[in-house]
């Protein structure tokens, strides 16, 4: 983690416009702050650490030995877990990666377009459409899934990735549309005006002015789409019937069946493996998160 710290400091201090406070001696304040934050981080991380430790324990010790002290190392959990299901676990990682990548592209393109219209353009039915958009995320998926399955099975899309990807290409994820609307509305209007006076039309303003400035929102969308799609269980369970098509969350659950014994060691090992890509995605993504307007220097 030291590498991380060193890399992060210049990025964030460069962008920090605020002068330090002077009342309390700086070193003391810093110690208090770091102690507090470290303690909090430890609490936040305890379950994750426990999971990593458990992935290295023999199966029958996981629930018998408490705490996070490791007294014997069972690395075989990783190889066992990797090969436990119909295909090597890498197969499911690849499937998930395909779905995630397509969903990210879909969300970035379609949601930003819709958001630009809602945030910057004035058109007939705007309020109604906006309310409709918000309304579509208010129904729980469990009553939508059956009619939707019927629809997709009529289209012959069941057991393909299409039911997972196409909706994202068509901006059905209102969460991100709304998120981007809020970000765009937070951008100064003068920027569009200036571009317009220079003769730019909407496509150009959108591509050249708005998109670069909403980099934090796009990064947020990317990170969240990655994580949520990576973890989404229900729709992947329903639409992917052939084990060849299974994604990580569906495969992970195949380790656990409440009616029989579970290979906990393998399950935790593969949970750790499947956590790595999302964590990496976050580490990379967060660097763009903090490159907002404040750091790009636009005034």
């Amino acid at each position: 983690m030291t590498d991380l710290q060193e890399r992060a400091v210049p990025v964030s201090t460069a962008g920090d416009p605020r002068p330090p406070r002077v009342r309390v001696p700086a070193p003391l304040r810093s110690i208090v702050k770091h102690t507090g934050l470290s303690l909090l981080a430890l609490i936040m991380l305890y379950p994750v650490i426990w999971m990593v430790v458990s992935s290295l324990r023999p199966n029958n010790e996981i629930f018998r030995s408490p705490g996070i002290v490791l007294d014997s190392l069972q690395v075989a959990n990783y190889s066992d877990g990797w090969n436990a299901l119909a295909a090597p676990f890498g197969h499911y990682l690849l499937n998930s990666a395909i779905v995630v990548l397509a969903c990210i592209i879909g969300n970035l393109v379609s949601c930003s377009m819709a958001a630009y219209a809602f945030a910057r353009l004035d058109f007939t039915g705007k309020k109604l459409f906006f309310a409709t958009m918000l309304g579509t995320i208010m129904l729980p998926i469990h009553v939508i899934i059956v009619p939707q399955y019927i629809l997709f099975s009529q289209l012959g899309w069941v057991n393909t990735f299409l039911p997972l990807i196409v909706p994202k290409l068509l901006a059905t994820d209102a969460f991100f549309v709304f998120l981007m609307v809020q970000f765009i509305r937070g951008l100064p209007r003068e920027l569009d005006e200036a571009a317009r006076i220079d003769g730019a039309g909407h496509p150009r303003i959108f591509l050249r002015v708005i998109l670069p400035l909403m980099l934090p929102a796009l990064a947020t969308t990317t990170i969240f789409t990655f994580i949520w799609t990576w973890n989404d269980f229900f729709s992947q369970l329903i639409y992917l019937t052939d084990p060849e098509m299974y994604t990580v969350p569906v495969a992970l659950r195949s380790f656990v069946d409440s009616t029989v014994a579970t290979s906990w060691g393998s399950m935790f090992a593969m949970s750790v493996v499947s956590l790595l890509p999302v964590f990496l995605a976050f580490l990379i993504g967060q660097r763009y998160l903090i490159k907002g307007i404040a750091t790009t220097g636009i005034k």
Partner: peptide, 25 residues
Amino acid sequence: VKGEFKEWNGYWDSLATTVAANDAP
């Protein structure tokens, strides 16, 4: 033969949905 395996809870959700859509295994 295409084997489709699920864990207990997901199994019944999935079965009910496929039966409803006339697409049962």
